[in-house]
Computed example of a mutant assay.
Amino acid sequence: MLGQLRHETGIQAPATVVWQLFGSLELGRLVEKRLSNLFEKIEVVEGDGGEGTVLNLIFAPGLGMPSYKEKFTKIDNENRIKEAEVVEGGYLDIGFTLYRVRFKIIENGEDSCIVESTIEYEIMEEAAANASLVTIQPLIDIAQEANAYLLQNKQPKDA
């Protein structure tokens, strides 16, 4: 069984600035610091933030699953697309054969852009009920927190 969830969040910062955050390990540091209600810790297992980087995401207690490892499978700087797939634990332990997260940064004028967040998944038929556990809300929270962070740390145009 295949599934997909998608959401678009407006960001009040230029696409190039937003991509600097989303296309790097900086996003994980921001999320760990500012979304402790979702993530207890985000550890770099291997890599430098490029394709092939593996992260261990440890969730806050009470969120249903303790942790999983994800691998950056695509980082397209030209089109501002980053994809990560769960490679160990988490969704793979409850019948999913694929769980992929994608962020795409879409230019929307000089000083704003859109973060298109997508979750794609495949799940075995016998575990189909677990598809109801998939939610786009954490990705929405990440995009909204990124917007708040970028607004707080906005550089003056003259700088």
Rank of each mutant, 00 (worst) to 15 (best):
E126S: 09
S112I: 04
A143N: 02
G109A: 04
G109T: 03
A146C: 05
P138D: 07
D141N: 15
A143M: 06
E120N: 13
I142D: 05
A131P: 08
V134F: 08
T118I: 15
E107P: 04
I105C: 11
N108Q: 11
E145V: 07
I136R: 10
G109K: 03
I136M: 08
Y121I: 05
Q137P: 10
S112Y: 00
Q144D: 15
D111P: 00
E110H: 05
S112N: 10
A128P: 01
S117W: 04
E107Y: 01
I119Q: 08
S132V: 12
M124R: 14
N130M: 10
E145L: 11
Y121L: 11
E120V: 10
C113K: 03
A131L: 00
E107F: 01
E145K: 11
E110Y: 05
L133V: 13
S132R: 14
I142G: 02
K104Q: 14
L139E: 06
A129I: 12
A129R: 14
A146N: 07
S117D: 01
A128C: 09
Q144N: 15
E126D: 08
T118C: 09
D141V: 06
S112F: 00
D111Y: 01
F103I: 01
I114Y: 12
E122R: 02
G109Y: 02
T118E: 13
L139C: 09
K104V: 03
V134Q: 09
A146Q: 09
I123E: 00
A143G: 08
I114S: 09
F103A: 01
A143I: 01
E120P: 00
I136V: 15
E125S: 13
S117R: 04
M124A: 13
A128H: 11
C113F: 02
I105E: 05
I123L: 01
V115T: 10
P138G: 08
I123R: 03
E107V: 01
F103T: 06
V134G: 04
E125N: 13
I123Q: 02
I105M: 06
D111Q: 07
I123S: 00
M124W: 01
I114N: 10
A143T: 02
K104S: 03
P138I: 07
Q137S: 15
A131Y: 00
E116Q: 13
Q137D: 15
A127K: 13
N108I: 00
N108D: 11
I119E: 07
A143W: 09
A131T: 07
I136P: 08
I142L: 10
F103Y: 09
E110Q: 08
T135F: 06
S112W: 01
A129M: 14
E107C: 01
S117H: 08
E145C: 15
L139I: 10
Q137L: 14
E107D: 05
N108M: 01
E110M: 03
E122H: 09
A127N: 15
E145M: 13
A131S: 15
Q137K: 15
C113H: 00
V134M: 04
D111W: 00
